[in-house]
């Protein structure tokens, strides 16, 4: 299988199809990264498109071809941040979470019940995604981005530190506090069932 470096070399030598292969390979991860960060499907598609256009225009400037994926995530993150600044998006406040909790409490219990019966149920996944998306939006941006990169994109802490230009311990600390904050929100919503027990 052709790796990213080979495809970048091909693209730099004039083969546009190589870039399309890169797009095909990375569009899903990038889209899901943006979607979890922004929380809006249509906007996520727009930003993903911008991200690849920007990558298309500036890929020749990338010196270290091994760092393509961090570079691409960095572009996506910058575009997301620009969009948040432009649209003045606000994360959900604690009071919003509380109101949401009170209005939709019964729905969550249904979700959990469905989960017990049929884990692959599409409706359940959609509801769970919506709830987790909402929960993610309640935590600070710097913690959210670390959780998304680590939890859903399997990046090493060193890679995240490299992308975010922050010390590795800061990244781990953000991860810790982000998970803690998410636990508090999920607990409030009744989604804190511990699937995984810690075993000593």
């Amino acid at each position: 299988m052709m790796n990213d470096e080979f495809l970048i070399d091909e693209f730099n030598s004039g083969n546009v199809a190589a870039f399309n292969t890169l797009v095909w390979r990375w569009e899903k991860p990038i889209y899901n990264f943006i979607l979890r960060y922004i929380g809006d499907c249509d906007l996520a598609k727009d930003i993903m498109q911008q991200c690849f256009i920007k990558a298309f225009k500036s890929l020749k400037k990338l010196r270290d071809h091994q760092r393509f994926s961090p570079w691409l995530y960095r572009i996506a993150l910058n575009l997301c941040r620009d969009e948040l600044k432009k649209k003045k998006y606000t994360t959900f406040s604690i009071s919003d979470v509380r109101d949401f909790d009170e209005n939709n409490k019964s729905d969550y219990s249904i979700v959990l019940k469905d989960n017990d019966n049929n884990a692959t149920d599409l409706a359940h996944h959609e509801n769970l995604a919506e709830l987790l998306q909402r929960a993610l939006m309640t935590i600070p941006e710097e913690q959210r981005v670390v959780i998304i990169m680590k939890q859903y994109h399997g990046m090493k802490f060193t890679e995240i530190a490299d992308i975010l230009k922050a010390p590795i311990n800061t990244i781990k600390s953000r991860m810790y506090y982000g998970l803690d904050a998410l636990h508090a929100v999920l607990q409030r919503w009744g989604l804190d069932r511990e699937d995984l027990e810690y075993e000593m």
Binding site: E27, M48, L128, L179, D180, L191, D192, E194, L196
Partner: peptide, 24 residues
């Protein structure tokens, strides 16, 4: 224990397809 449970819960949120085809 709670952090592991939270991380486990987050793992249940699966990736979705963008359903759009970008071609350069």
């Amino acid at each position: 224990r709670t952090l592991r449970a939270t991380a486990g819960r987050l793992k249940q949120w699966e990736d979705i397809e963008p359903h759009m085809k970008l071609t350069f």
